[in-house]
Nucleic acid binder design. Structure first.
Length: 111
DNA sequence: GGGTTGACCAATG
DNA sequence: TCATTGGCCAACC
């Protein structure tokens, strides 16, 4: 598969995540149907700047080791359910039970 | 061609 | 809740 095609597939899926919801790297990997979670993570680090990357979190609901402050601002703005702002240790985590989204449409774009 | 690294995941203590 | 362990896949020295 062309690397570019894989990247586009991942980015397309990320854009399908509605505001106020989040999904995980592993879920994206399965939705794309190829490669593993780490592959998705790498794609995000390379092309994440073009998509709402803050809607992609780790399986436990914590954010990537980078940009947690910025992501928190987006969550506040979109109304994404989060758990305790945490004691100054950075950001709290996402309330996965309420915010998790995994209802992707298998095929990339269209219409 | 082979070892290291990484925006990962799940299980365990 | 955090740390550790083993496994995963591709990119990068």
């Amino acid at each position: 598969m062309d690397p570019d095609a894989y990247v586009e597939a991942v980015l397309t899926l990320v854009e399908q995540v509605p505001p106020g919801r989040v999904t995980t790297y592993g879920t994206l990997a399965e939705a794309v149907g190829y490669g593993g979670p780490r592959r998705v993570g790498r794609v995000m680090s390379t092309h994440g700047g073009s998509v709402p990357w803050w809607r992609v979190v780790r399986a436990d609901g914590s954010l990537p080791p980078s940009h947690d402050d910025e992501a928190r601002a987006h969550y506040a703005e979109e109304g994404t359910p989060t758990r305790s702002p945490a004691r100054g240790h950075g950001i709290g985590r996402i309330d996965m039970a309420a915010a998790y989204f995994g209802d992707f449409t298998p095929s990339p774009p269209r219409p």
